[in-house]
Amino acid sequence: MTQKLYTWTILSLVLVFLIGPFLIITAASFSAGDTLAFPPEGFSFKWIVKVFTVESFRESFVTSIILAVGGTLTALILGIPASYAMSRYKLPGAETVRFLVSLPIVVPGIIVGLALLRYFVIPLGISISLALFVAHTALVLPYAVRVVSASLNNLRSDMEEAAVLLGSTRFGAFMRIVLPNIRGGVLAAFILGFVTSFNQVPVSLFLSGPGVRTLPIDMLGYMEIVFDPSIAALSSLLAFFSIGIVFAAERFLGFSRYV
């Protein structure tokens, strides 16, 4: 009995600490008052509605979606062949390749953003949008390689050999045999990459300019100026958005198997 008491005391405390703030901010976003407060003053949807009317939120939301989708797709296009080379070939310099593609996990994002701004955007005249896109692609690359590699390593390589012996080219075998069988892993990598890129802040800090701003950066700027529940409303909307994606992925894919 004491064991059970211990278990539930600890777990409720930890959950209150981890999930509680999220519930409070959700409640606060339904406030009818004009200042951020908990318990909320009255109940209304006005702040939720307001989020959708703020022009810059709409723009930066679209920017973030494009970045997350485009960056993750590009990372997969680069990462899948690299993972395939590392898992199926005797790749010269495999360790160097592994090191290079895992760099974005080790190097803090803020440094990358600054470096790109200072040495690419300013001197070479590369647009901030492109730099942002490249930075987000690089950021997602390690996750893409990790998840896809895990899927590839779970797939027996003699299937490709069998396809080749039946007359297929190596590329054909990859498209017809390998890709359909690692589909789940690729989708999981996409979702993981999307969520990572969408929520990312440090890499985008220095890479914003007029009209180019990701949603989290926009929120950071907005909350310094405005102290009403709209950021709370947006935060809870975003939380539900991310959770919704991950839940759907888990439901239809068994997402957690791959991550």
Binding site: R156, D158, E161, L165, G167
Partner: peptide, 14 residues
């Protein structure tokens, strides 16, 4: 390998 006209039944069947 894809033009040799040789068949192989793998141990794992593949």
């Amino acid at each position: 390998a894809n033009r040799r006209e040789i068949g192989l039944v793998f141990q794992s069947y593949a």
